[in-house]
Structure formats: C-alpha cells, structure tokens
C-alpha cells in the first residue's frame, strides 16, 4: 500500500489538488516531501496500532477455539452446554457446564441489580445535583474505585465482608449474597462514568425548557433527563454486565467454588471464570480442553454483549 501510494502522491496529485483549492488554502504543493513522508508514516503507524488490536482478538479467538473445539466434538455441544455434572477427574469424566453458566448469570444479574441503580444514582448526582466543589471530591473517588485491582476487592470480600455474612447467615459466608455486593461495588464506576457522560451530553436547553415549564428538579431528572439519556445508560449497564460476568479474581475469593447450583444465596458456587482459575493448575487432557471450551463460551458471551451495545446504539441513533 505504501509502496503504491508514495510515488503517485508525490508527483501527480500535487498539481491536481493545488488547482482545485483557493489560493489561500494550504495546498499539498506547499508540503515538502519529508513532511509528506512523515504524514504517511504516521498514517501507517495508526493503521498498525488498530491492526494489533484486531489481530490480538483474532489470534486469541483462534487459539482458544483451536484448543477448546475438540471437547464439543467429544462430548457433544448439547451435553457440554446442557450438562449439570462437572466431574472432570472422575473415572467417567463429565463435562457439563450448565450449572456454571447459570451461576455466572445469577452472580452477574444480582450484582447488576444492586450496582446499576447505585451507579445511575451516582451519575445523576454528579451530573445534576452536586455543586462543582462536591463533584471535585466525589468524581475522583468513583474513578479510584475503577482503578482498584480486582484481587483487592476479592481480599476485601474474603476478609471483611464474608465474616459478616457468615455471622448473619450462620453459614460459611461464601455465596451469591457476598459476590453480589462485591460485584456491585466493582461495576459501579464503569456504569457511573458512562451514564454521567450520557447525562452531560444532553443539551442544557432541554433542562432549561423543562424548568421553564415549571418542572421541579426531581421531575426534570426523572421525566426528562433519564429518558433522554436512556440509550447511553443501557450501554453503560451492558458494559457493567460484561465486567461482572468476566470478573474472576474477586469472585473466586468469595464464591466458595462448589460445582453445583446452590440451593440458597448463602451457599458456595462456581462460575465459568472461576472454574478456569481453580482447575487450570492441575488440569490435563480432556479436562484442559474442556476449560478452553468454557473460555469459548465466555468469549461468545462477551461478543453478544458488544453486539447488544452496537444494536442498541444504532436504535438510539435512529430515534434521535
């Protein structure tokens, strides 16, 4: 591409472009060859940057797919996705991940149910309610929450939160209840930041119009601003969901890792991500292949989330 473009651009187009513009406009003919080369090099540099991201996704997907595919052939897709028994080291190994899928969904949706209202509330506060001075303090605090490594959330959950839940429930303290709280705090900054952006991007004329019609602040927020920012907030929630379902280190420390669908929210459970952490150190053969199969499922779930965001954004674009 570079080879073909360069000579052409450095000779012929110069004259053409110079002719087509007004005398005052900077034209390509005023650009020296070295500047042109620099520009072209930069263009290609950015192309490479973008290509690396795309190539990484493709390579990871191909690698995971290549390593995990045989398990579908071996157990059958239905048995893998629909089986409730994850017994990889038994004499008759069974690789059913339905319990793990269901546990992942319960953990994610519960965390979302707790965290999303909290996060949207934070966003409304930051964008509509807080004075600039208060905002100056609250926003960095929320941003800091996003920067805390997930293993620290896990430690906090294990050492501080779990004993309290254990006291309250009479059990060990591992379970959905603990994971929900940890996940809710973890996804709060993601959802809050994007929702706040969505709220702030609403033209101030809309707020003024609402106030001019006699609406109170609460009515403005509830009836005007939140509906107007709906698409952005839904995007934010789906992104938070992606973070919650993929979260591993924090969950592994508070989940308790029992490979069943628990019969209560204070009972241990294992998810799609945590099974990989727990089993990978000693897995071999089909067991290892099955873990890659779990990774494929996780990959497809996050692809579905990204697709959902794109579809919703497009719908939003058509609406406005």
């Amino acid at each position: 591409m570079t080879l073909r473009d360069e000579p052409a651009a450095s000779t012929a187009p110069r004259a053409d472009v110079a002719d087509s513009r007004g005398p005052d406009a900077p034209t390509l003919s005023t650009i020296s060859r070295s500047t042109y080369l620099k520009e072209a090099a930069l263009k290609n540099l950015f192309l490479v940057c973008a290509f690396v991201a795309v190539a990484a996704v493709l390579l990871i997907f191909m690698f995971v797919g290549y390593r995990g595919w045989p398990i579908f052939a071996k157990t059958g897709l239905a048995a893998f996705l629909g089986g409730l028994q994850w017994q990889p080291t038994a004499e008759q190994p069974q690789f059913g991940i339905l319990a793990l899928i269901i546990n992942s969904l319960i953990a994610t949706l519960g965390g979302l149910a707790l965290g999303a209202p909290l996060a949207v509330g934070t966003a409304v506060f930051l964008s509509e309610v807080a004075t600039p001075r208060v905002r100056e303090w609250v926003r960095p605090a929320v941003e800091l929450l996003a920067g805390i490594p997930s293993v620290v959330y896990g430690l906090f959950g294990l050492l501080a939160l779990r004993p309290i839940i254990a006291q309250a429930s009479g059990g060990l303290g591992f379970g959905f209840a603990t994971a929900w709280i940890v996940l809710a705090v973890m996804i709060l900054p993601t959802i809050a930041a994007i929702s706040e952006d969505a709220l702030r991007s609403i033209p101030s004329g809309i707020r003024e119009a609402s106030y001019a019609m006699g609406a109170t602040k609460w009515q403005t927020i509830w009836r005007v601003l939140l509906p107007a920012a709906k698409i952005g907030i839904i995007d934010a929630i789906i992104l938070g969901m992606g973070r919650a379902i993929g979260e591993t280190m924090a969950v592994v420390m508070v989940a308790g890792n029992a490979k069943v669908i628990p019969d209560g929210i204070f009972k241990p459970f294992l998810t799609l991500t945590t099974v990989i952490v727990i089993d990978m150190p000693y897995a071999s053969g089909d067991h290892r292949t099955a873990l890659f199969g779990v990774a494929i499922v996780l990959f497809l779930i996050s692809m579905a989330f990204v697709a959902a965001i794109r579809v919703i954004s497009r719908l939003g674009g058509e609406q406005s």
Partner: peptide
C-alpha cells in the same frame, strides 16, 4: 455442595470464623 478453597491458610481462616 461443599466450599472449595485453594490453600491451608484459607481453610483455617474460614473455619476460625
């Protein structure tokens, strides 16, 4: 349905509480 913990220290810590 039992909790599965990766380490002696964690088992002791949880049982202690």
């Amino acid at each position: 349905t039992a909790a599965v913990l990766p380490g002696t220290g964690q088992v002791r810590f949880v049982v202690a509480q």
